[in-house]
Amino acid sequence: MEAADGHFTGIRVPAIAVKGLTKSFGSHLALRGVEFRVEAGEAVVIFGPNGAGKTTLIKILATIMNPSSGEVIINGLTTRDNAEKIRRGIGVITHQTFLYSNLTAFENLDFYCRLYDVPRPRERIEEVAATVDMTSRLHDRIGTLSRGMQQRLSIARALLHGPSILLLDEPETGLDQQAVAILRQAVTVEKGGRRTVVLTTHNLERGLELSDRLLILARGKIVFEKTTRTLDLSGLKEAYHQYTG
């Protein structure tokens, strides 16, 4: 219980701790010893070119994929042994919406409420729908909605169960202006305080805007780490090109 709160015998437990993480697909090494920590309430952006291993990393953090070696500790629990418990506290947003096109927005959200044991689903669905400004389209089928609307509903889906950690894998792909604004405000702030956010992107400007700290992932390793306050865009671009070639 203490661990879940982010506190354990007085020492602050990081929201996410990644240790010696490797992932191989046969003889191809996608991740080769990734190490980093994310403190509770911190927003971290991971930059990297295509094929750097960003999606693999997010999938491992989201417990969709198992690492080949190393471990991920989320709120003091290892993903290897506590995947189900950890999934309860995570929301995942990717460029795929995880919504069924034949069902209405409401039916989709209702389905996920059941999977996440959300109490009083009807109220909660209306609440998150209002957050992403989709209340009026709640009973339309997903297939009839625009890409931007679908993405906003995808954000709503990820927020349904009030996760303390949000994992975002290149979420800006296909997002409209409104969705980006929602992402920035509604997503990062939770009732009890700030959410922990891990975001991958190759859009340097947006990444800087959304984060407190940045990491650069290149060829399966973290090669650069800095807080965003001490870095401007031109400095970042320089560092990025230096490390990613």
């Binding site: 417990t63 999934r87 995570i90 795929q96 919504l99 096109s101």
Partner: peptide, 14 residues
């Protein structure tokens, strides 16, 4: 095809 399999896999269930 709906890209929803991962949505099921991140949900808190075995």
């Amino acid at each position: 095809e709906e890209n929803c399999l991962e949505g099921l896999m991140v949900a808190p269930m075995s």
